[in-house]
Design a protein around this nucleic acid. Structure first.
Lengths: 260, 260
DNA sequence: AAGTGGTCTAGACCACTTT
DNA sequence: AAGTGGTCTAGACCACTTC
């Protein structure tokens, strides 16, 4: 935001550069720009699927060079928060779109192509959140939560049974009907109807035995080995907004992971 | 490797830029530089843990600007092939070093800190590779392979039982004694003793029931739910060099994964 | 002081898309 | 033709490490 000659202490938008004295909150310019862009994403100034201003435009707005804006967007792109398209522009990432749909679903068929799963909503209820749920979602004990139970079918075969816990305050008008009639990934609905984008998640996996209830739902024997998957999803600002407890049938599917 | 005025068709080290006519193998300069650096890594010109030439030096060597070298190294760094250290230089990644050790091991204790696991080598044998193994390792059917069986203990508790299949041609002098006396991660030994670096891997997970053999090894009941993990590891050039079939006990541990 | 990676700028040109 | 992201250069200065 200032030529190289005038050293750092210029008028920074977020934090200023540190030089002589102690400057505990220093961060490079492009990180500050990245934070500003993320604020605009979070605030909804640019919505999922939309075009954000061009690099040149952003450089003018923030009074930095295009290269600096570029480096900021590079990182946002690496984190899947935006998508670049040469000649067209940079778009806000969205859970609609085939390309990135189901990017959190790592269950693959052992042989053949992955097809789009079908859903059956079993139940949607609102209740005062159990302690383990409110603790993970970082809300007050006893606060309202929504619990969705559903089955997912792969090629007609019931393969995933899950409980999805959401903060009631955010997901107000969520009903079984609304969920049932919605086509496409659930995160797409969360995004457009409730303004909540899932941008990151962590999963914990364990092998467990199917109990009677899940055995019946998933059409496997009681005591069959199944994969227990607990997922916590986060939106902007590292805020947890979903706890998902799932059982995957891994007889003819597997959980796929890439390490590097 | 040429000023901007002279367009692309200059003297490129790998591929030349495409312009007028059809140029099927075009790739940007920094990708070509990246490929050259990777060749030097693969050939052992710079060995794991060593310092590679500085950006300025590489820029001179390849006759490009420092920025272009920088972008090439950026990608190598993102792929964990090299590690940058400000003020010191850029180092070839290594499986020794606490920071990156066990980076392919995603099994975490449900509570508490992860401690370094202990190994017990059960068996090391050489044999003509079974079809499923040679197919995955991309070697000829019946070629010699090494099979290592071992148990890993977490805080003294047997938790992982695995079979590790390696191409016999690469791992010639591998013996049970050599493995047993070696401290630290096995990939470290592979790296220094056999010049083979694992740089990427894919895993497939399934929930299964413990059979008699593994139940005895892992001190669990026959029919207990355990996690089956099949890993294929790759070295430079996408060459598969390890097939690992493991059973993880997930009673008080879980497989941890980050999604984004 | 010298060398390394890290940040920032300014400007040129290329490849792709839309008008 | 105009606009967008993608590549490349050249040069300045900063932060960190070592001598």
């Amino acid at each position: 935001m200032n030529p190289t000659v005038t050293p750092p202490p210029a008028a920074g938008p977020a934090a200023s550069s540190g030089q002589g004295a102690a400057s505990p909150t220093f961060s490079p310019l492009y990180q500050q720009i990245k934070a500003l862009i993320m604020q605009s994403l979070q605030s909804g100034e640019w919505k999922p699927g939309e075009l954000i201003p061009s690099e040149v435009e952003l450089a003018l707005r923030y009074k930095v060079s295009q290269g600096t804006v570029r480096k900021a967007i590079d990182e946002l792109s690496a984190e899947n928060l935006v998508v670049r398209r040469q000649g067209k522009g940079t778009f806000v990432a969205t859970h609609h779109e085939a390309r990135v749909q189901f990017r959190f679903l790592k269950l693959m068929p052992d042989a053949g192509e992955a097809h789009q799963p079908e859903n059956r909503i079993v139940e949607v209820k609102r209740l005062r959140g159990p302690a383990e749920v409110t603790r993970v979602l970082d809300i007050k004990a006893g606060d309202s939560v929504v619990c969705i139970r559903r089955i997912q079918y792969f090629d007609g075969v019931p393969t995933i049974a899950e409980e999805i816990w959401l903060p009631g305050a955010i997901f107000k008008g969520l009903t079984a009907e609304r969920l049932a009639e919605y086509k496409g990934p659930m995160y797409g609905l969360f995004e457009t109807e409730f303004g909540t984008q899932m941008i990151r998640a962590t999963e914990k996996l364990k092998a467990v035995l199917a109990d009677e209830a899940t055995a019946a739902q998933l059409n496997v024997a009681v005591g069959a080995p199944v994969l227990g998957v607990e997922r916590v999803s986060y939106t902007y600002g590292e805020r947890p907004v979903e706890l998902r407890r799932a059982i995957y049938v891994t007889a003819s599917h597997h959980y796929h992971n890439e390490l590097s």
